[in-house]
Design a protein around this nucleic acid. Structure first.
Length: 775
DNA sequence: GGATCTCATGTTTTT
DNA sequence: CATGAGATCC
């Protein structure tokens, strides 16, 4: 604990020990920004005698918050009691819940509406305003509303400049009223309402300013106007704001993030200290040089002189596949070769621009029987059955929530149809009730005047009875018990678990959710907030040792020894929707930059000559970004002009990619395939994120050509004698020095086992590993 | 109330 | 192509 500052380089130390004030840390990729943040917090506590109660650290993801907490705990060897660490949204939710007495429209138990709930509200507004949802698509309107909230624009100051924005303004206005009537906030409200609260109540703001004397922010380039305003308000008194970010990694512009907040910050506070973190601890020099070459094409950026001690490194491999199918096979065969070189499946990640691209890759993994983990598939909390149960719980917690009411009032079906609901709405509205209040009234007040008869009355009465029983039960019982009670009385299992595989999966998902609800220390309110603000990737444990498939966006903040970036074609990356606008194009370039800089040792870039979109296959043009990487850093077919499609293709591109020819022939032979896939179960990779995916792809999976067919290449000659012998001292680019313990010919390659000084015994393929004999 | 069909839609999505 | 929402039919 004494020497925690010694593990920092000079720039990091300058940052960590900077005199409190406005401090901006411009941190290149892999430069240790989390380390700087965590050490700074420890420094404040240890050296500056700041109480943890007076520190606020905000991140964008729960994962980042947890990681920082964990690392601080390690540094202190104790839990930092009192420290406020969390996402923007969770910190704001906490403040708002504490301050509902001072808010006009909300009560303490407000719920958080997710995107699906929001859409329901927008649709309802359109109906109320008699607007055509074909002409005004709800998602577009919602986007407009969200943008406004991110810019801190309330309906009353929303300036409509044209017809569509006038419509947006009107919908926005009604939308907010419905949310308030439902005692609900959407994600953007959590941020905006906190800022509005501070603006309206300077005394409350002052309380928080006094509490949070030191504020630290991660990923500052991703803040939107509202988040920036929030930070400015909170920091206005003590002026201690420690912001860490990198404009070059700003990839959420489309969500309202504005990396110009970095410049804004500097202009607003000319006295702010600006510290650059330029030493990269992740990548080789070659990878860093390639990344720098790419990002240098963007204008208006703060130049950083990134450097690393990992001189040299493996060249960037660029490969052209015939089509997207072959691209997948190339990735697979490269992975197999890398497995022979001591890498394990978990060391590698395959990245792409759009989720749609994952399918072909997934199929390649399944075919090859290789373990993979797909990030970003249908999210657990977005599943129908999970949302249903959460809607039940939410309604019990907050009966004003009419979106949840509508969702489950007739799920499972209990004879409350559209006609009955309409009558109910009208009756409730006439009495100034929300629909749940109305059915409870119906069930509990025999005197009440109502418009229902016969079956409709019975159905509503029964539902009202159940609902009020649950509300009563919720007061004294654990979430898990309430959960079981609702499941039992609603007959939900019979409804969802219909004996099919899918029904069984759905029931499993509910049981998984029950597992989360079962924590006896969790109140219903806390459970619901956790479920609303925690994304699935935060919750599920990683599938051990499988290759990760993910979008470039999802890759931000992660690192892998080996990175594949696929689909480097015009229209794909940069994406076609981004090519008209210089700002958007710059963001695409940053996305590519983010992808490259995830890699520690090796980068593989690939593009397909033909790609299938929406059923039709079209020829592509290699991405302009590929041309930005200096030739000296790459091997493989550096695209210069579009290739001709011809019979000669098989020979033409394999000849032009010498490095690949050996890899591919190696792994499509018995060597790679048979030995290295045996340890991984068939669908080992996709069990976590999408239980459906296996069955979803099963029926559509076409019998694809075995590695041997059209685009296979001539086999390499089998080496006849061993290059290496036992006891020889060798050196490897990544693993360092070692001693050969065995060498033999297998398949068409020489396999060498080497005991490395640092990393232990590895099995390597001689044709692939650049093993140098020492002495 | 539920199954089946048709049609539009298709970038990224920390919370 | 593949998915989802809404309309239509039973």
């Amino acid at each position: 604990m004494t020497n925690y500052l010694d593990e920092l380089n000079s720039q990091q130390k300058t940052a960590v020990t900077a005199k409190p004030g406005r401090i901006l840390i411009l941190a290149g990729p892999g430069s240790g920004k989390t380390r700087v943040l965590t050490h700074r917090i420890v420094y404040l506590m240890r050296e500056m005698n700041v109480s943890p109660w007076n520190i606020l650290a905000v991140t964008f993801t729960n994962k980042a918050a947890r990681e920082m907490n964990h690392r601080i705990e390690q540094l202190l060897d104790a839990h930092p009691r009192g420290l406020t660490m969390g996402t923007f949204h969770s910190v704001c939710a906490r403040i708002l819940r504490r301050e509902t007495d001072n808010m006009r429209h909300y009560q303490r138990d407000f719920v958080i509406f997710d995107t699906a709930d929001q859409l329901q509200v927008v649709k309802r507004v359109l109906k109320e305003l008699n607007l055509d949802d074909k002409k005004f698509p709800p998602p577009k309107l919602l986007n407009g509303i969200s943008n406004a909230k991110n810019e801190l624009i309330t309906p009353d100051i929303y300036a409509s400049t044209n017809y569509i924005s006038e419509i947006t303004r009107r919908v926005y206005e009604q939308y907010q009223l419905i949310l308030q009537a439902n005692n609900a906030m959407d994600f953007d409200d959590l941020l905006m309402n906190t800022v509005l609260l501070f603006k309206e109540h300077p005394d409350i703001l002052q309380t928080y300013q006094q509490k949070y004397q030191h504020i630290l922010v991660d990923e500052f380039q991703d803040t939107n106007t509202t988040q920036y305003a929030l930070l400015q308000h909170l920091a206005a008194q003590h002026n201690n704001l420690f912001a860490v970010g990198d404009g070059d990694q700003s990839v959420y512009r489309w969500r309202g993030a504005d990396f110009r907040n970095i410049q804004r910050f500097q202009e607003a506070h000319p006295d702010a200290q600006v510290i650059l973190l330029e030493q990269n601890y992740r990548s080789t020099q070659i990878i860093l040089d390639a990344a720098k070459a790419v990002i240098q094409h963007n204008q208006n950026r703060t130049h950083k002189n990134l450097f690393t001690e990992r001189q040299g490194g493996e060249p960037i491999v660029i490969d052209e596949a015939y089509n997207d199918l072959e691209e997948g096979d190339i990735v697979i065969s490269t992975i197999k070769s890398l497995l022979l070189n001591g890498y394990s499946p978990g060391d590698m990640a395959v990245m792409y621009r759009t989720n749609a691209q994952s399918r072909v890759l997934e199929e390649a993994f399944i075919r090859a029987n290789m373990p993979y983990r797909l990030i970003g598939a249908t999210q657990f909390y977005k599943r129908r059955e999970v949302k249903d149960i959460i809607a039940y719980l939410r309604l019990v917690h907050n009966p004003a929530d009419s979106v949840s009411f509508n969702r489950i009032v007739n799920v499972p079906t209990r004879g409350i149809g559209a006609k009955t609901l309409q009558t109910l709405q009208a009756w409730a509205a006439a009495n100034q009730w929300q629909p749940a209040d109305a059915v409870i009234e119906l069930a509990t007040n025999p005197e009440v005047q109502h418009p229902f008869r016969g079956r409709a009355f019975n159905a509503l009465h029964n539902f009202g009875n159940m609902l009020s029983a649950w509300i009563t039960a919720s007061a004294g019982s654990h979430v898990g018990d309430l959960f079981d009670l609702i499941l039992e009385q609603s007959n939900y299992r019979e409804y969802i678990d219909d004996g099919t595989d899918e029904g069984c999966d759905r029931w499993d998902n509910i049981m998984e959710l029950r597992g989360v609800a079962n924590d006896p220390n969790l109140t219903l309110s806390e459970f619901l907030e956790q479920v609303a603000l925690v994304s699935e990737t935060d919750n599920l444990e990683e599938v051990p040792n499988s290759t990760t498939l993910l979008t470039l966006h999802a890759a931000k903040g992660l690192e892998y020894p080996v990175v594949f970036i696929t689909g480097l074609e015009e229209g794909m990356l940069p994406h076609s929707r981004s090519m008209q606008d210089a700002e958007e194009l710059a963001e695409e370039r940053r996305l590519f930059y983010v992808g490259i800089t995830r890699a520690k040792d090796r980068v593989y870039l690939s593009h397909a000559f033909r790609r299938t979109f929406y059923g039709t296959t079209e020829a592509t043009t290699p991405s302009r970004f590929l041309m930005d990487i200096p030739e000296a850093l790459t091997i493989g077919s550096k695209p210069k002009q579009r290739r001709q499609e011809s019979k000669a293709r098989a020979s033409s591109w394999h000849q032009s990619t010498p490095s690949w020819s050996s890899n591919r022939s190696q792994s499509s032979s018995s060597l790679g395939a048979s030995r290295h896939s045996s340890s991984s179960p068939a669908h080992g990779g996709n069990q976590s994120s999408d239980k459906k995916s296996a069955s979803r792809y099963e029926p559509t999976r076409k019998p694809l050509p075995k590695p041997n067919s059209p685009y296979d290449e001539p086999k390499r000659a089998t080496p006849t004698s061993c290059q290496f012998s036992t006891g020889q001292k060798v050196e490897h680019a990544t693993f360092g020095k070692g001693i050969v313990i065995e060498s033999k010919i297998t398949g068409n390659d020489e396999e060498v086992s080497v005991a490395f000084n640092k990393v232990g015994i590895k099995r390597l393929a001689a044709s692939f590993a650049k093993l140098a004999v020492v002495e």
